[in-house]
């Protein structure tokens, strides 16, 4: 695993890699070299993109995109991370490298509002008729939304009482 750390650091400028536990590798890289890192990892045996996560670091005003790639032969699991601006969350798609990247990007687009350029299908996946800000952002107040949307609807008893008075 340590050979992987040195290799990644030497090939890609500005890339920092550190180990987390036994079989985990966390690679932090600037936005422009993410696709190159993913391409390199795929060529060196990490065939599968497991998932794409997004973390909302609201205090830094940044989104962190986390690409989980893994190999089938080695127990090593690599997380490629990059930070993008929270006010203008635009990032190129990874569909040219991993075929299944599109669906993860579609999910993150819906839940965080990250725009993936080049992905032809960013239609809503889970939510129906959603009008508020993307729900997984930290500034989305879930409990207030629930109060306004669901709890404000009158119950049958309230409705009857209103009609009688």
């Amino acid at each position: 695993m340590n050979d992987m750390v040195d290799l990644l650091k030497s090939i890609f400028k500005g890339t920092d890699a550190r180990t987390l536990g036994e079989n985990r590798l966390s690679v932090t890289t600037p936005g422009e070299s993410v696709l190159a890192v993913l391409d390199y990892l795929k060529a060196s045996g990490f065939y599968q993109l497991k998932s794409i996560s997004c973390v909302d670091w609201i205090d830094d005003n940044e989104f962190e995109l986390v690409y989980h790639v893994a190999s089938l032969e080695r127990p090593l699991h690599i997380m490629v991370k990059t930070r993008i601006d929270r006010d203008k969350p635009v990032f190129p798609t990874a569909m040219s490298i991993f075929k299944n990247a599109g669906i993860f990007e579609r999910e993150m687009h819906e839940l965080f509002g990250v725009m993936f350029e080049g992905n032809p299908d960013l239609n809503p996946l889970f939510l129906d008729n959603w009008k508020d800000i993307p729900p997984f952002r930290k500034d989305f107040d879930m409990r207030k939304y629930v109060k306004d949307t669901y709890d404000s609807i009158p119950s049958f008893e309230e409705y009857k009482w209103q009609k009688e008075n």
């Binding site: 889970f126 939510l127 879930m142 409990r143 629930v146 669901y150 609807i153 009158p154 119950s155 049958f156």
Partner: peptide, 17 residues
Amino acid sequence: NGGMYWDSYNTIKHLDK
């Protein structure tokens, strides 16, 4: 009454409404 998901943004809380 919403049960476990009383504060979830995507589930309705009272079906009889």
